[in-house]
Amino acid sequence: MSEPISALGMARFDGLAGVADCGLQGMITLRGDLSARAVKSAVTTATGITGPKQPRPLQIVTGKAGTAAWMSPDEMLLLCPYGEVDAVLAAMQQKLAKAHALAVDVSDARALLQVTGPSAREVMAKLCPLDLSPATFQPGTIRRTRMAQIPAALWMEDEMSFQVICFRSVADYAFNLLKTAAQPESGVGYF
């Protein structure tokens, strides 16, 4: 069996912040009526997050089995280990059998990067038109935004680290962007 490889081959850079490829991440796009029972139940199946705890707008929630992130009024992104996507999707399809919903594997369509360190917020704020101050952006918030010239989604794992998703084809550009923004001596001292 051939080994799947991520777009960035686990590249990393250390500067003002650490920038690293997170490797392959299972990702499932779920489109449907997010308040529908079948859809909620599919989310629970995939992530272990029960209905009332599932993410509201701009939220990302981690459960026992996986993570669910609000993407739009009719779209959720579910994260699980890369190797489990097929099984998770199959389990979800059971729940969704009678619902009008679309669940697809998008793991290979994306790249996942991590930006870490005390200056991580600062590095992101050079590239994304978002208010990243601790008062408005905390672990638990997810935003789909623009990172320089590409679409990106980002959230914080903890006070010191961001996870950034972009399309696989522009992973190289995204890595170079973050590397540029994290050049030593380019500190802003902002946050």
Partner: peptide, 16 residues
């Protein structure tokens, strides 16, 4: 231009 020069002048989409 900001960061938009050299490698990061413009996103280049790369096939797998």
């Amino acid at each position: 231009a900001g960061e938009a020069r050299g490698d990061t002048f413009q996103p280049l989409r790369r096939s797998p």
